[in-house]
Design a protein around this nucleic acid. Structure first.
Length: 219
DNA sequence: CGGTCAGAGCAAATTACTTCA
DNA sequence: AGTGAAGTAATTTGCTCTGAC
């Protein structure tokens, strides 16, 4: 994207090869000139890579099909990273550790607004002396961490909910068991009768007699 | 106007490196 | 000093969306 400054990258790549090709290509049918790998055989050490943007990819460039990457110099899709990130580090992947200041500033920015637009990305990158790609990756990973944390939290809530429902279920089953045993021992009816005899206020529901038998079936 | 393509962004999964107990 | 686990930067893959042709 031009606003991302990758237009320059593409021009720069052209310099590494034979002939200059204007960007964008005049005709869509013309094969795009891709010499990214050749242009980046020399890799600066990490210190330098912090200063210079070596993103060879027009950021986010994707080969959409096998034909596509054949057209682009037989590069498999799995080789993209080499070109795309154009050897951010030496052949062996070295991992940059963000400083506390960088991390906390990114975190602060993320808390304010988790979305990242190109302008913000570049501003942050410049501010923190990082590459825009690094800022982008940080935000992607940060969103993934947030989501993971949320999933874990949700899981805990659901687990607790499940536990309490299970407990409630057990309690109700026990209660039901007790009621059944009381009924079968007629303890329920006798206690009811004695209660009636005592205060004489309760009136007996006419349906009770029959419901006793039907309830038994339903349970 | 609909189809195609390239470019960009993102999520998810994975890898690989660093740090720390 | 060696090691495994945890954290995280970076990569890969696949998908969607958008704009140009």
């Amino acid at each position: 994207m031009e606003e991302d400054g990758y237009c320059n990258t593409k021009l720069g790549l052209g310099l590494g090869g034979e002939t200059y090709v204007p960007w964008p290509p005049q005709k869509q049918k013309e094969k795009p000139v891709v010499r990214l790998d050749l242009s980046f055989t020399l890799c600066p050490d990490q210190q330098d890579s912090m200063k210079i943007d070596y993103h060879g990819k027009a950021e986010g460039t994707r080969f959409r099909s096998e034909e596509d990457h054949e057209e682009c110099g037989n590069k498999k899709r799995s080789d993209r990273s080499i070109d795309d990130n154009s050897c951010m580090y030496d052949a062996g992947r070295k991992k940059l550790r963000l400083t506390k200041d960088q991390s906390s500033y990114l975190e602060e920015t993320f808390q304010r607004h988790p979305a990242l637009n190109p302008a913000k990305k570049h501003a942050l990158a410049e501010q923190l002396n990082l590459k825009p790609r690094q800022v982008e990756v940080w935000f992607q990973n940060r969103r993934a961490r947030t989501k993971l944390k949320q999933t874990e939290a949700d899981y805990e809530v659901l687990k607790k909910c499940c536990e309490s429902l299970s407990n409630e279920n057990r309690r109700l089953k026990r209660e039901l068991q007790e009621l059944r045993s009381q009924k079968s021992g007629r303890s329920l009816s006798s206690s009811l009768h004695s209660q009636l005899a005592k205060d004489g206020t309760a009136t007996k529901c006419p349906s009770c007699e029959e419901s006793t038998t039907t309830d038994q079936k339903n349970w």
